[in-house]
Amino acid sequence: MKLRFSRKALCIPYAVFLLFFVIVPMLVIVFYAFTDRNNHISFQNFIQFFSDPTKLSTIVYSLVIALITTAVTLLIAYPVSYILARSKIKKKTVLLLLFITPMWINFVLRVNAIRELLNWIGLLGEANYFNTVLGMVYDFLPFMILPLYTTMQKIDNSLYEASADLGGNAVTTFFRITVPLSMPGILSGITMVFLPSMTNYVVSDMLGNSKVTIIGKFIETYFGSDWHMGSMIALFLLIIVFVSTIFTGGFKSEENARGANL
């Protein structure tokens, strides 16, 4: 008997990993979402979820918070990445590192630090929604800067020269070259900021004094009392993730993508 290893055999560990840590848990969520407490198939959770104004409203609130967070993050991150990628500053990696370093510090510690800061300014407990968005923007900024920076850095300098040769001014160059070519970075940045900010309830709990409730908090609460409804909400979010990934082209093996789809 001879054991033959083909290259395909190398992917078995990954397949097993994916099976047990991605596919099976998802199936378990689907199972819980469509069963009742006696483990009978039931659409009760589904109906209750879509007929409960509180849950729908909370989803809307989470969406709005996530939208604002993403927009603000993009507005801050874009110029930063542009300057970092385009400028000829020496040691700009150091500058980039300064923006990225907070990512290496424990998340809860960072949020606690902001909490103390807001307390000192006097905003804590006064402007809960503002604080929540502020915390999320701070938290997710590196996730926006990094993909933007990588895509922008890869834009060929000759394109800018060509644009200048053909009489394009700075504004035209920016909108006709930089923006379209950094689109993959923008999309992956948005994906990485928008979806987590719908569920990142640690921020809303700590900076919004638990008076701001986003949909992630509901999942957490329900998993204390009713796994079935919790799974239903989680499944709904999963579908949102799936749909938005289709929209942002995450499933296409993009020929034009400049390697920034992290």
Partner: peptide
């Protein structure tokens, strides 16, 4: 009672807004 709690914690918009 758990549903009541989510209603207290979450936000409830009017039907037309939704």
């Amino acid at each position: 009672i758990n549903e009541l709690w989510t209603k207290v914690k979450g936000e409830t918009l009017d039907g037309w807004a939704i």
